[in-house]
Write a protein that binds this DNA or RNA. Structure first.
Length: 110
DNA sequence: GGGTTGACAACAG
DNA sequence: GCTGTTGCCAACC
């Protein structure tokens, strides 16, 4: 386990550290990992993290706060329901007051 | 070893 | 402001 995950494991760790009621963006995580231009890698990691309950992928949204990956979840609005359960309001597949709920690992974890 | 894909992001039109 | 294209890098076929 875990020798092939080095890049993903970093993502898991960051996402896992995201406090409840907060959301982060792929770019923020990627940038924290030193791969700011590789935000897609974060999304790929999320795909693998799908089977990991410790990785709240629903707290990870794109730069616009849009729930891009909600279609990848089991249900259609499962991701939204989870975020609402965290206390985050979602409207039109987008996080309300995204900037307020935005959690920057490079800043918070620093 | 090579080509395509991908839960994004930034720039150009 | 939105749509289209490019870039980036790792995984998948």
């Amino acid at each position: 386990m875990a020798d092939t995950d080095n890049f993903f494991d970093r993502v898991y760790e960051v996402v896992r550290c995201v406090p409840k009621g907060r959301v982060t963006s792929y770019g923020a995580i990627a940038k924290y990992l030193g791969a700011a231009r590789s935000a897609r890698m974060v999304g790929w990691a999320m795909n693998v993290s799908h089977g990991k309950e410790d990785v709240p992928a629903h707290r990870v949204v794109n730069r616009k706060g849009l729930l891009t990956g909600k279609f990848h979840f089991d249900g259609t609005n499962l991701m939204q329901q989870l975020l609402e359960n965290e206390g985050i309001l979602i409207e039109n597949n987008q996080v309300v007051d995204f900037a307020k709920y935005f959690w920057d690992p490079a800043k918070e974890l620093n």
